[in-house]
Amino acid sequence: MNNEKIKILLIDDEEEFASTLAERLELRGYVAKIAKGGESGISLIAHESFDIVLLDLMMPGLNGLDTLKQIKIINKHLPVILLTGHGSVQGGTEGMRIGAFDFLMKPLDIKKLIKKIQLAINNE
């Protein structure tokens, strides 16, 4: 799949992190949209089509794992990559058990993230 057609939804309550990462992804030819929390992310997924979701685990309100469960109910084939705090391996592995494609630790290495996005999309 061509980068220009790949539409990414980034769900993270840290707005500055999400907007900067979205800008970096757009510089690489992706289309990136931001949701500030689990609820708004789920609402977007219900109404719009995305190729992949980048989902923060630790969010106020609906947390990452609960958001992931909801996403999988709406579209079980939509690949989700979890973003966790450094050292929070437990949450990441729990997420993979629920259906996440993989997890990455923050701060992100953009090259690793791009590689993981491509892998997840090609896997689908």
């Binding site: 500055e16 923050k106 701060p107 992100l108």
Partner: peptide, 12 residues
């Protein structure tokens, strides 16, 4: 860690 992630992303 969130603060550091934002700094790192902006440096990127």
């Amino acid at each position: 860690q969130n603060v550091l992630a934002i700094i790192k992303e902006n440096a990127g």
